[in-house]
Amino acid sequence: MSVSRLLLQTAAVALLIAAPSTAYSAPKGNIIAAAQTSPDHKTLVAAIKAAKLVDDLASKGPLTVFAPTDAAFAKLPAGTVETLLQPQNRDQLVKILTYHVVAGQFTAAAIVQLINQGGGQATLTTLEGSPLVARLVDGKVVVTDESGRTATVVTADLQQSNGVIHVTDGVFLPN
């Protein structure tokens, strides 16, 4: 086995056993129900409600959601979240939120496998229609949006009835 393959497999194992940093419910609920139970995702839940995407994220799926924490939203320029939550900005908010969702269930192991197969990176197409590129950096999955903004998966594989949630420390913004 090559050293690089061993490192990738080690990274996948590290992602799979990472201790959750949020208080999601057991994997018996759907994605939106899980987000609503997390003390670290109040902004995300408010945005999902404002965008009227609750039913979509409670749907059958499967879906993979890269879920920014409240701290990730707080890194955006002052007033950004408040502006996006206004009813007249719903279309823009929907575009941003669907840029965090990929059709299908991509566990950490599956993402690492795609990175390995892709020669060091994997491209995932979001429901918004734009790509996200995943890479391994220092043993962690780092996802880059089309504008070069990055977010690290801080908690992986929060399995839900309709997909999987990966908690991130950044927000993606489509062009």
Rank of each mutant, 00 (worst) to 15 (best):
S2E: 12
S4N: 07
L7W: 08
L8W: 07
L8I: 03
A11S: 15
A11K: 01
A11V: 06
V13A: 12
V13E: 13
L16Y: 07
A19Q: 09
A19L: 13
S21R: 08
A23P: 02
A23V: 14
G29I: 10
N30I: 06
I31D: 04
I31S: 04
I32Q: 05
A33Q: 15
T37Q: 09
P39A: 13
D40Y: 01
H41K: 10
V45H: 03
I48Y: 00
A50H: 05
L53V: 11
D55M: 05
D56F: 05
D56M: 06
L57A: 06
G61R: 06
P62K: 07
P62R: 06
F66P: 01
A67D: 04
A67R: 03
T69Y: 02
A72L: 11
A72T: 10
A72P: 12
P77K: 13
T80A: 15
T83L: 14
T83M: 15
T83D: 06
Q86R: 14
Q86A: 13
R90T: 13
D91Y: 03
Q92E: 11
I96S: 10
Y99D: 08
Y99N: 15
Y99H: 11
H100F: 08
V101T: 14
V102I: 12
Q105G: 13
T107G: 06
I111L: 07
I111R: 02
L114V: 02
L114I: 03
I115N: 01
G118E: 02
G120N: 08
A122F: 05
L124V: 11
L124R: 02
L124D: 00
L124T: 08
L127W: 05
E128L: 13
S130P: 04
S130L: 13
V133C: 09
V133H: 09
L136H: 11
D138A: 10
V141G: 01
V141T: 04
D145W: 02
T152L: 04
V153D: 01
T155M: 12
T155S: 14
Q159Y: 06
Q160M: 14
S161W: 01
N162A: 12
G163N: 13
I165T: 11
I165R: 06
H166V: 15
P174S: 08
P174Y: 02
P174Q: 07
N175Q: 08
